[in-house]
Design a protein around this nucleic acid. Structure first.
Lengths: 384, 384
DNA sequence: GACCTTACCTTTCCTTTGGAAACTAAGACA
DNA sequence: TGTCTTAGTTTCCAAAGGAAAGGTAAGGTC
């Protein structure tokens, strides 16, 4: 069922195809350092098992020599469900081996009770299955559940989730039993980072960071091809880097946190103070800023600067090749972007400014896609 | 000459012995996951080559069974020179396989000209050789040169050294030719981190950070057993994390840098302003603070807070098991320590506070020892 | 059209590596 | 002296991937 019973070179070949798309055997050999013979040897059983398939000739024909035959991953060979759990709702996708979504759905949560949520997850997975026209039980290869907070993916337990107020919940086991498919769980931002690492803007990079800006501000770090977890489950907490000199008190009790200035909530709050309108929403604040309101614009500018400082911290500390900035507030990016970049450039030290900043929208199902990526990873990158 | 021509398991066994000290073959098998047979097979050639040796019985005898025979690394099997280059002087040590210093020496530099420095390094290595009673050319297994700034250890070139004003100097090759022994170069803080990783407070930890506080403030990060280098040569630049709200301008041109508040130079400057004595030295500032001068104490307190914030950034971002704080100013640690810890605890997010803070003195030859460790690493951990 | 060249792919053979398991070794104890 | 227990060794074997020769499919050339 997985690639675990194949030789290591098989996983290498498969991963190379996942990341680079169709390649000839010879080219795979060159990229992986394997000999052509080894590639053939290892690719044959993968082909027999339906994991890969021949897809024809390269478009750019060479002048001489035997033409190459491209092989590619059969993405539909395995399907995965990804579910992101928040305090208010579940977001689910059904995706293939390359984490491409085939179906997506959202469900509101009435209760944060563990049993209720587990049941809702199982039902959502069933719904996704039905949407994609699956009936057999065994066609779903795995489920990946993601959730913000302290998640121990190895144990399969949610150690602590502030939004759900869960502690030490063996969620993987519970969902596996309720939904009837192998289940892995992971921190939401780390899962998103895994998705980017294999199938997104982080593909092929040895070190990159993914920063999400929205209700919270977090980051996933992929260093040397591995997403870091932190010894105590904490890593990538850019939201609480003490970089701002603004005196607003953060939810964590400190002042100076990025989140206290740049989270959706913080921006709304500040815009309310600036305008004197205590009912102002984020959408209205964005509209005001776009309309040119100087005070509201200043709020966004301050938020952008804080995010830029956070990015500079990441760049100075770990020196990633690229930082992917992602978030729900794509509509308002033009209000931040320049300030983010400027304050990043100002505070990145030396060659750290060469770090590539990429902005990437974060549609709602993207979060759930992270779960599918983590589940898929179990198949093609077994036993890390 | 190295372990590169031995099977991977040989390096594993050797590294286990390096980090844990003498162990029985059976115990090595348990720790590494190798079978007893594999351990024997792989240990025999190492023993024949003199890399390891039997050292007797464990002190804690077990009641039953055949007594174990301990084997241990023969540290004297290979000797290495480590040289740290600063703008003013060279610091050199001669060390064995475990980076234990056998001889140490310092030399002032009259010139920062590349040729002059290379020659001085070669002479220093010769002097160290003589001090340790070595005469034969081939008894020195390698030289490790460390230097602050942007060092590409794979290419063996100093990309940029601000203190020496060097750019793209192929230092490894130059020193190798001049001194007649295989030479590797590395960034000074990274080298120190390597030394701690194998032989110091980082041994056995999968993730830790080493922060050095002194003339500059820097950090080395070891994540998942690998010291991170940064995609553009920049990593661990805690000195320029923008965490302070003090308006002092840093050497990098920004305000808010940790270094602008907590470096030796910055502390001295601030103490001069506080006392009105423009000639005050660091030593006098320390004395004044110890004597209870409130304004000078406030300067140290501010520096401690800034360092604590930097540590919190490191903990929040990468979640190390331990942060090792090291620096020249050990004499003045009591002036910082509480403020460092307090501000770390205040700003570390969630479980990141569980990160272990360890203070470790940094004697002058420790820097050079890092070079020896890097050179030694080439022998026992080949081809990363 | 026969032959050459080129590069892709496959096959065969072989080395390296480390596990499995039987075997030997050494001390304690009955 | 035999037995028990754990340490260490040896033998055998299977897995994995490299080396190199051979087969294959195209274009080019005389």
């Amino acid at each position: 069922m997985t690639l675990a019973d194949q030789p290591p070179a098989a996983a290498l070949v498969f991963q190379t195809l996942l990341q680079h798309g169709p390649l000839s055997r010879a080219e795979i050999g060159r990229r992986t350092g394997l000999t052509p013979g080894a590639v053939t040897k290892v690719a044959t059983p993968l082909m027999v098992d339906g994991w890969i398939t021949e897809v024809g000739r390269p478009t750019t024909e060479r002048a001489s020599g035997r033409p190459a035959t491209l092989i590619a991953v059969r993405a539909e060979r395995a399907l995965f469900a990804g579910v992101k759990v928040t305090g208010e709702e579940l977001i689910g996708v059904l995706a293939d081996l390359t984490a491409r979504p085939l179906a997506a759905s959202r469900v509101r949560l009435d209760s944060r009770d563990v049993g209720t949520v587990v049941l809702a997850i199982a039902r959502l997975v069933d719904e996704l299955r039905a949407m994609a026209g699956l009936t057999q039980v065994d066609t779903l290869h795995g489920i990946g559940v993601t959730i913000s907070g302290d998640v121990d993916s190895r144990l399969g337990t949610v150690q602590y989730s502030p939004f759900l107020d869960w502690r030490r919940v063996p969620l993987a086991q519970l969902v596996e039993t309720a939904a009837g498919a192998p289940t892995v769980i992971e921190n939401d931002v780390r899962a998103l980072t895994v998705a980017e690492q294999w199938f997104g803007a982080g593909a092929g990079l040895s070190t990159f960071a993914l920063v999400t800006v929205g209700a919270g501000i977090g980051a996933g770090l992929s260093i040397g091809g591995r997403v870091v977890s932190g010894a105590h489950g904490v890593a990538g907490e850019v939201g609480h880097l003490p970089v701002s000199c603004v005196d607003r008190i953060c939810t964590c009790g400190n002042t100076g946190c990025v989140e206290a200035v740049a989270s959706t909530h913080a921006i709304t709050e500040q815009a309310r103070q600036a305008t004197g309108n205590a009912r102002l929403t984020m959408e209205e604040a964005v509209r005001l800023a776009h309309a040119g309101d100087p005070e509201v614009r200043a709020v966004f500018a301050g938020a952008g600067r804080a995010v830029g400082l956070a990015l500079a911290c990441v760049a100075n500390l770990i020196g990633p090749e690229r930082i992917i900035i992602s978030g729900e507030g794509v509509a308002s990016y033009d209000l931040f972007a320049d300030h983010i970049r400027q304050s990043f450039v100002d505070h990145a030290f030396g060659a750290a400014v060469d770090c590539d900043l990429v902005v990437r929208p974060l549609p709602f199902e993207e979060w759930a896609r992270g779960g599918a990526a983590v589940a898929a990873q179990r198949v093609f990158a077994p036993a890390k």
